[in-house]
């Protein structure tokens, strides 16, 4: 464990808490993409299948359980409890255009052709593009609530911090996972436009609006 990965995990946890707080406090999931949240739940489900079989540490097990529980909790809030506030008209990104190519790629490019490894690879590839429906939704509505922009900033920062973690692990532990690094870079690059808007607007106290 290193400081980059720890702050990355904390940023990830913070993002999930911010989203739950937003939905719970405003009793609304307006502006949140249910499709992205469904893909995040799929990411955690396919990545943490070894939760039972492969004990690594208390931290690892606890965080995995929190991520799985909170992702399904978010789906419950969005599609059951506050379903009436789900903005399906703006959440129109075609998930199959992401899930199908990612599934195909995970069969073609992986470290080991075993079920667990292919599912892990699928989850890594899927996570790198899972935010696209959310970013697409914001581009359609042209704006995002401030707390939703904080959620996205924390979520985007987590994988950027993981890139620093991989640099650290490469130089100090000789650890290198090409699949995780490439997918992590793609994932982080997708946030660049949002990061620019967030830093130039939200940090100046303005609402996050996209140029018309």
């Amino acid at each position: 464990m290193n400081v980059f990965r720890l702050t990355g995990d904390i940023a990830h946890l913070l993002a999930i808490i911010l989203l739950l707080m937003k939905i719970w406090k405003t009793r609304s999931c307006a502006g949140v993409s249910g499709k992205s949240q469904m893909m995040f739940a799929l990411v955690f489900t396919t990545r943490y299948l070894d939760l039972i079989t492969n004990f690594i540490s208390l931290y690892n097990t606890t965080m995995k359980m929190i991520f799985i529980a909170s992702s399904y909790g978010t789906l419950y809030l969005m599609f059951l409890k506050f379903r009436a506030t789900y903005d399906s008209n703006h959440d129109t990104f075609r998930m199959e255009f992401l899930v199908v190519p990612v599934a195909g790629l995970s069969f073609l490019v992986n470290h080991d052709f075993s079920p667990l490894e292919i599912l892990w690879t699928f989850s890594i590839y899927l996570e790198s593009v899972a935010i696209l429906p959310q970013l697409f939704m914001i581009s359609k509505t042209g704006e995002a609530e401030t707390i939703t922009s904080h959620y996205l900033f924390a979520l985007g920062s987590y994988r950027a911090l993981y890139i620093l973690n991989w640099v650290y692990r490469f130089y100090f532990e000789g650890f290198f996972d090409l699949i995780a690094v490439v997918a992590g870079c793609v994932q982080t690059v997708l946030y660049c436009d949002f990061f620019y808007l967030y830093i130039t607007k939200v940090w100046k106290g303005k609402k996050l609006t996209l140029p018309a």
Partner: peptide, 10 residues
């Protein structure tokens, strides 16, 4: 390759 054992990242 990153085998199962060193998948210690979340």
């Amino acid at each position: 390759s990153s085998s199962q054992v060193d998948k210690d990242e979340l």
